[in-house]
């Protein structure tokens, strides 16, 4: 279970002198659902294309089951890809699209029929065999793309923002189905997305990326609860990020007040980013609170209210609470030491 199937070692990729990826080290375990998460232009798609073989690394090695495959062409890799816009063959019908890989392997007709039939069951497209792929809806095209890749029984399936073009409801459904398929088939999934919710709900491991570098690798819970830097904290969920100074272990100063926290190991008086999740802030009376401000806006979001509280020093706090205070009410904000996350300033490592 813990065997590494794909490994990237010090991989860099340059396009016209600019680095799309720099010094990437990553191990992907067999049967793992790994998500590459980051804003557009962070290099996540480039990384996928390197694993798929559509690009060659400028430096570094890509290992597949321990063997270097950096220069192996895509058609010789035991990896299949689901492309962002599906990239179906418009000159072939649904059946022939799915059978494409098997026909190239010169499999006999009966075996192809059986395998394609099983795939059609899996993706719920029975009866669509003779349909033209252009006549299908986005969701159906997506299923054809999934079936076309999975029918080849790849060791690793690469998915390049496969759900980006679908509407929200369909997206949720497909997230669920993909996750189930992955469990059922026991295939390693490498999934690229810029949607943090998608990443958190589907993955075993999330790789957060920015500017061609990995920011953090960890389980969804770890990434959310213990973000390694202010970028990760801000990208995964919403956060208040405040400048602070670490006075000593477990004591931080921000906005002129001292707060107890749980972080240790910083230099005395080291400037830090203090990250506080909006749902960890509690509204109290303004009397005697260390953090005070005035409610500037209230938005009802269903489960909770989102409020912006403007502090005396001008900082706007984002607060999520099931309770609501009307606009222009002076309020206090309270928080527990364990909800204060201290991060080193970027570039201070």
């Amino acid at each position: 279970m813990t065997e590494t199937i794909v490994q990237l070692k010090e991989v860099s990729k340059l396009y016209n002198e600019t680095a799309a990826l720099a010094g990437i080290n990553l191990k992907i375990k067999r049967n793992e659902f790994v998500t590459l998460l980051g804003p557009s232009g962070c290099g996540k798609t480039t990384m996928l294309r390197l694993i798929g073989g559509f690009e060659e690394p400028s430096s570094g090695d890509i290992l597949f089951e321990g063997k270097d495959i950096s220069n192996v062409p895509p058609y010789k890799r035991k990896v299949n890809t689901i492309f962002q816009r599906y990239a179906l063959f418009s000159h072939l019908d649904v059946y022939e699209n799915i059978a494409f890989g098997l026909r190239i392997k010169k499999m006999n007709g009966a075996a192809i029929k059986e395998k394609v039939g099983r795939m059609l069951d899996l993706v719920n497209l029975n009866g669509f065999e003779k349909r033209n792929v252009d006549s299908l809806s986005g969701g159906q095209q997506q299923r054809v793309a999934i079936a076309r890749a999975l029918v080849n029984e790849p060791e690793v399936l690469l998915l390049d923002e496969p759900l980006a073009a679908l509407d929200l409801k369909l997206r949720r459904e497909m997230q669920h189905e993909l996750k189930n398929m992955q469990k059922q088939l026991g295939i390693t999934f490498v999934f690229v997305t810029h949607d943090q919710e998608e990443a958190l709900s589907m993955s075993d491991t999330v790789v957060v990326m920015k500017d061609g570098e990995i920011q953090q690798i960890g389980s969804p819970e770890m990434i959310y609860n213990e973000p390694e830097n202010a970028f990760v904290a801000d990208f995964i969920g919403e956060s208040n990020i405040i400048d602070g100074v670490m006075l000593q272990d477990r004591l931080v100063e921000m906005g002129g007040e001292h707060f107890a926290c749980v972080d240790e190991g910083f230099d005395p008086y080291e400037p830090v980013d203090v990250v506080i999740r909006p749902e960890d802030l509690r509204l109290t009376s303004s009397q005697g609170a260390k953090l005070r401000g005035v409610v500037r806006s209230v938005t009802f979001l269903g489960v909770h209210y989102e409020m912006i509280v403007e502090a005396d020093n001008g900082f706007s706090w984002l607060v999520h609470s099931t309770l609501m205070e009307p606009v222009n009410t002076p309020v206090g904000l309270e928080l527990e030491p364990m909800d204060i996350h201290i991060m080193r300033k970027a570039g201070k490592r």
Partner: peptide, 21 residues
């Protein structure tokens, strides 16, 4: 679309097969 050709390669087609198929 270049991606369609990449998809064919991805499914095991070498350049010659990509052309014919």
């Amino acid at each position: 679309d270049r991606r369609v050709l990449e998809a064919a390669q991805d499914l095991g087609a070498n350049s010659w097969t990509v052309f014919w198929r």
